[in-house]
């Protein structure tokens, strides 16, 4: 088959894998209230809000996903060298990463809750631990597997010169960073502070005054994930997929149009700048539209 076609197919497949990974990663971090929203969950009991959120304080998402995907990558790489076929090696690697993920999750919930239990009367909810662990590990497994697949494609088809464990580490850090920067916006201030007006941010006086009641019953991490699965998760996936996809096209357009290396690089850079400019303009339009339509805050 034509090698260019193969490369295009691999690029599309890694874009699709990145989309699924971004979505699963964001929903997983919402179940556990990881990274950004975590500090508010942590402050809750100190402000008198005894809550049933899962407090998954495993560092930030980039670092923790770096760990899972790197662990999965190292194991899969070892199994591939042993001669195991590719899908099974990737699945076993992701399985080991899911196990590590679960171990770290439970320890962080118990550690953080017990760390302020006596002073502020926050009980340990074992049913929260047991019921949330499945969605956390499951979504984490999907995210890790997809990133590992993208990393495998990058090293085997797309000609990435670095070894699989290292590429996996970098890809894990990337998916964590995108999930944290894009996804948390939909959960953090919007969901935990639903009782305050939209668009006001979180003033210091309100910090820790998180919502503990759900639409029905007492709120837990699953409600947050359910809420975010409508827009936050898919948007995170779309963002990450677009980044991989558009970045790939940037190079390919340069490859097709340009002649020598310098003109190829210049075309790739110009295309990149054009994409960033369009994205920035669209972002500004959406922001202005949302503030006008939903927010009480107007231009003064």
């Amino acid at each position: 088959m034509d090698p260019t076609l193969l490369v295009l197919g691999a690029l599309a497949l890694s874009g699709a894998a990145a989309t699924v990974a971004g979505c699963a990663e964001d929903l997983e971090s919402d179940v556990g209230s990881q990274s950004n929203p975590n500090s508010q969950v942590q402050l809750g009991p100190q402000m008198g809000n005894i809550h049933r959120y899962f407090n998954k304080a495993i560092s930030g998402e980039p670092v923790s996903y770096g760990l899972y995907v790197a662990a999965a990558g190292a194991v899969a790489w070892a199994l591939l060298n042993m001669g195991l076929n590719v899908p099974i090696a990737l699945i076993i690697g992701s399985g080991i990463a899911a196990f590590v993920h679960g171990a770290y999750s439970v320890s962080s919930y118990l550690g953080r809750i017990v760390g302020q239990s006596q002073n502020f009367g926050q009980p340990v909810y074992m049913d929260v631990v047991l019921s949330h662990l499945g969605p956390i590990v499951g979504h984490g497994f999907i995210a890790v597997f997809c990133m590992l697949l993208a990393a495998y494609l990058a090293t085997s088809v797309l000609g990435n010169p670095f070894p699989l464990p290292l590429v996996a580490l970098i890809f894990g850090i990337t998916v964590g960073a995108i999930g944290s920067s894009t996804g948390d916006v939909h959960y953090g201030a919007e969901r935990e502070y639903q009782k305050y007006p939209f668009g006001g941010g979180v003033p210091v006086a309100n910090q820790g005054d998180i919502d503990i009641k759900a639409e029905y019953g007492i709120r837990n991490g699953m409600d947050s994930s359910y809420f975010c699965s409508k827009l936050g998760g898919p948007l995170t996936g779309l963002t990450f997929g677009l980044i991989i996809f558009l970045d790939g096209w940037r190079g390919i357009i340069g490859e097709i149009v340009g002649g020598d290396l310098v003109s190829k690089s210049i075309i790739a850079i110009v295309v990149g700048i054009v994409i960033v400019a369009i994205a920035a303009y669209l972002n500004r339009m959406v922001e202005v539209y949302a503030r006008k339509k939903y927010g009480p805050y107007t231009d003064r």
Partner: peptide, 12 residues
């Protein structure tokens, strides 16, 4: 070490 361990969704 926890002040209480609960298995049911109730707030103190």
């Amino acid at each position: 070490d926890a002040c209480s361990v609960l298995y049911t969704p109730e707030l103190p």
